[in-house]
């Protein structure tokens, strides 16, 4: 077994994501050793388990012989250094995984929306983007966050609000989008594409109205989700 195969096997054992990737019809590239995210997660688990063992050793040393130079050394490693790595890796993984469709779908209020998103028969805008892979990953997050660092921060703060409302039950059904959907999120990807610019429906004179949201993209291209579809049909 060469190094690459060994690394790939370790990743399959450590991460369910790698197992999911293995089930895909499209074969992985030759020499595939996993994604950065999978490595972050695998290393995080290894460092986390190592840290627990180091903490046990530090505790035992401190308990038996007091604050000796050896105990100080174990404490520096177990409380000072290794947890720093664990903190970095787990935070990076948590932040990354909080943007996935699975993360958004983990709250049961989102189940119908995520089911529609993944339904190849659905004609909603979200499902069309998903089944044609217009967006490669993190589909919910990509469309529901603004571009740039500011957009990421705002989305994360909004996500905290969602967790709070979901946990405390302070929300009303059916859930709906908090603010009108900004066209800039659509135009960020589509605005400069030839298909968009050459479409007879997207006249140049309409651009200012599209930019200031006077003409929402969803007016012609909606509904985005099944709940909106039902509302539109009433």
């Amino acid at each position: 077994m060469n190094g690459t195969t060994l690394a790939a096997s370790l990743l399959v054992m450590l991460t369910p994501l790698a197992a999911v990737a293995a089930e895909e019809v499209i074969p992985l590239p030759r020499g595939w050793i996993g994604t950065t995210g999978q490595w972050l997660r695998g290393l995080g688990i290894v460092f986390g388990l190592l840290n627990l063992a180091l903490l046990a050793v530090a505790w035992r040393t401190l308990h038996r012989s007091g604050l000796t130079p050896i105990a100080r050394g174990w404490l520096l490693v177990a409380v000072g250094l290794v947890p720093m790595m664990v903190a970095f890796l787990s935070f990076a993984h948590g932040l990354e995984s909080s943007a996935t469709v699975d993360s958004c779908g983990s709250c049961h209020v989102m189940t119908p929306l995520v089911a529609d998103l993944r339904n190849p028969q659905s004609t909603t805008l979200a499902a069309t983007h998903f089944k044609n892979r217009y967006i490669q990953e993190n589909h919910c997050y990509t469309c529901h966050s603004d571009y740039g660092l500011g957009g990421t921060l705002a989305a994360k703060m909004g996500g905290l609000g969602h967790v709070w409302r979901y946990t405390t039950g302070s929300y009303t059904q059916p859930i709906k989008i908090a603010h009108p959907y900004p066209n800039l999120r659509c135009l960020g990807c589509h605005g400069t594409s030839q298909k968009f610019q050459n479409s007879p429906g997207h006249l140049k004179e309409m651009m200012p109205s599209m930019l200031d949201n006077t003409i929402p993209c969803l007016t012609c291209h909606g509904p985005a989700h099944p709940a909106a579809k039902q509302a539109a049909s009433r």
Binding site: G48, L52, L62, V79, A87, S90, G94, V163
Partner: peptide, 27 residues
């Protein structure tokens, strides 16, 4: 220092939970 070890252990277990199964509430 014993308290520091215990607090680090609790932090470490929580980090492992996030790494093994990351749910929004857990994170």
């Amino acid at each position: 220092l014993k308290l520091a070890i215990l607090l680090t252990a609790v932090f470490d277990v929580m980090a492992l939970v996030v790494l093994v199964r990351s749910l929004p509430i857990g994170f």
